[in-house]
Simulated assay, not measured.
Amino acid sequence: MDLYIIRRHGIWSNEDELATTNDKSLQVGEEMKDRLRWIRSYAVTEEDGRIGSVCIYEARDRDAIREHGRRIDAPSEDIRLVSGTAVKRDDPEPVTIV
Results as ranks from 00 to 15, higher is better:
88 K>F: 08
25 S>I: 01
25 S>N: 09
77 E>R: 11
2 D>A: 10
9 H>V: 14
30 E>S: 05
35 R>E: 07
68 H>K: 04
94 P>Q: 00
34 D>C: 03
39 I>W: 01
81 L>A: 05
3 L>M: 12
89 R>G: 06
1 M>V: 11
37 R>H: 12
59 A>G: 09
5 I>W: 00
18 L>Y: 15
21 T>V: 12
43 A>M: 05
2 D>T: 05
46 E>L: 06
47 E>S: 09
32 M>K: 12
95 V>F: 05
93 E>Y: 09
56 I>P: 03
30 E>Q: 13
43 A>W: 03
48 D>S: 02
80 R>M: 13
88 K>H: 13
26 L>G: 13
93 E>G: 07
62 R>A: 03
41 S>H: 09
41 S>E: 09
61 D>G: 03
77 E>D: 15
83 S>K: 08
91 D>P: 12
16 D>S: 08
87 V>N: 12
54 V>S: 14
49 G>Q: 09
66 R>I: 10
41 S>P: 03
74 A>V: 15
72 I>T: 02
52 G>L: 09
75 P>S: 13
85 T>G: 01
67 E>C: 05
13 S>Y: 04
67 E>S: 09
75 P>R: 12
88 K>I: 13
69 G>R: 07
39 I>K: 02
61 D>I: 04
64 A>K: 04
86 A>I: 10
46 E>Y: 01
58 E>N: 14
7 R>V: 14
